[in-house]
Design a protein around this nucleic acid. Structure first.
Lengths: 210, 210
DNA sequence: CTAAACTGCGAACGTCGTTTGCAGTTTACA
DNA sequence: TGTAAACTGCAAACGACGTTCGCAGTTTAG
């Protein structure tokens, strides 16, 4: 797993082939199957190990929004360190122990927030989504807008021609706080109607963490 | 391209192999390279065609927030129709014509919003991110939380045991509006400082649309 | 001392994306 | 109308991939 992570850090996820990992370990591809049931297994291990690097979780201070923001910042650092993580956590595989711990910690931070469980899961998933997006924003200076016709795409051309305006301070933090506040209610109270209803069906969620 | 889309709709992206597409077209894999330079080319075509299905763009009515929400709703429908799209639009390839049109349209909706270009691009990208996340939420009833120890993960266990609370109405809309409002400023005015500075470097962005 | 389990290795299978050479057909132009 | 160029399709092959399998060699347990 360590060899695979080193490979992915250096040359990207596609470089993590069974043969490449085996070569790094001075063995052969087939031998790896003594310890792994499949390549997906290896990717799961990589993912959960990376999520483990989120420790130590930031100290609990401030309200839940401050705490979640601190967690998100740590996620962002992690994703910048391991640029392959964003792709892996989107797979619908089952969560490893570190991922479970992280989810539990996030839910703990939100334990006093009067919002439906559904909203909390969505909020955590969206927080990760924001992290992944921002972690990619800097690394890819790609220009997906090659040659465009200013007549057909006036707004796009204008926006690209005039990159002006200073980028807002801490766009990441702004987006995150807006999203979390909107999903989980105002910072202090204004609780969402929490009436007692017959329990609904369990919400579906994907193992998207880290 | 149509054959590839049909395949992806029916059996997922992994079923879109050159041989499978060729078989559907009653030919062979190698023959496809008369028209495509690579498999990525095919995926690009699929992506842009799907983005084209966003037309006709919803009628312009309401303020920019209402309009963006209508666009996002159309995106959401699209992603539910083509569940492979979320994966494809995350690739750092160059944008096709339909994608360019869509970006331009979104920027047009935002043309009167006094926010930095950076923030607008981020907002559009994040809007798509929210769409992708919600498009996956319903389809995957997966249980990434298999057997978990309630002692080690008390909050997680509690949350799963008590799915109660009715899911909030239109969580999608709430998340989206919160995010956009937070990134692009309040609905009416409260413009972000738009002072005249020396032009910054062009913002980096990925071809993430649809 | 022995039997079981574990470990590693080479070879192979099937699939993948892609390339190449060869034929057959269509098109463009004198 | 004739000919050269371009286009199209096909079979075969290449290298790389994930994965399986059988066979040795080694370690462990009783």
């Amino acid at each position: 797993m360590a060899a695979a992570i080193a490979l992915a850090d250096a040359e990207g996820l596609s470089a993590v082939s069974m043969r490449a990992v085996a070569t790094a370990l001075d063995t052969t591809a087939g031998s790896l199957y003594r310890y792994l049931s499949s390549r997906d297994d290896l990717l799961d291990l990589m993912t959960d190990h990376a999520v483990g690097e989120l420790r130590p979780y930031p100290q609990r201070q401030g309200d839940w929004l401050d705490q979640l923001q601190a967690l998100a910042q740590r996620q962002l650092d992690l994703h910048r360190r391991h640029r392959w993580l964003g792709e892996l956590i989107q797979r619908p595989t089952s969560a490893g122990p570190e991922t479970l711990d992280w989810y539990d910690h996030c839910l703990g931070v939100l334990s006093d927030v009067p919002a439906p469980t559904t909203a909390k899961f969505e909020a955590i998933a969206l927080m990760t989504g924001v992290v992944v997006l921002f972690s990619r924003t800097q690394t890819s200076t790609a220009q997906p807008f090659a040659a465009l016709d200013p007549a057909r795409h006036p707004h796009l051309a204008a926006a690209l021609a005039n990159p002006g305006q200073p980028p807002q301070d801490d766009l990441f933090g702004r987006a995150l706080r807006a999203l979390l506040t909107g999903l989980l209610g105002e910072r202090r109270q204004e609780p969402v109607a929490e009436g007692v209803h017959a329990p609904d069906r369990a919400v579906s969620h994907r193992g998207q963490a880290g």
